[in-house]
Amino acid sequence: MELLMAIVAGILFTAAIYLILSRSLIKVILGTGLLSHGAHLFILTMGGLGGSAPPVLIDGVTEFADPLPQALILTAIVISFGVTAFILVLAYRTYAVHKTDDLNSMKGNDEHD
């Protein structure tokens, strides 16, 4: 199972990086969305996937999933949502001002160096 999930995480990362490296601002945002999904699965996989019960104390259950990666991921999900919202609006604003989403035309000009 871990093998499969590691590969899925790898594919998500590959797709995310590919999108982030493109010239279109919109694709970059889509890429960051995939990147956070990949990162979450990555963390989960590192901790191991063999839990037989949710990490909740119930009488009689002694073996349950590792709670630590879950706690980390929970934080990460919320933060990644905040980041997504932020860059979406940033992109909106950028487009409103510059009328383009081509990253090449947004690079700083030399006079400000």
Binding site: F13, I17, L21, R23
Partner: peptide, 27 residues
């Protein structure tokens, strides 16, 4: 409020380099 998806004239060579690096990171 954002424009349609465009490639902005990225070449095949560009995409190939991006793809190789992306696969490297994924791996």
């Amino acid at each position: 409020h954002l424009p349609a998806l465009k490639t902005h004239g990225e070449t095949k060579q560009n995409k190939l380099v991006n793809g190789i690096i992306a696969i490297g990171v994924g791996l």
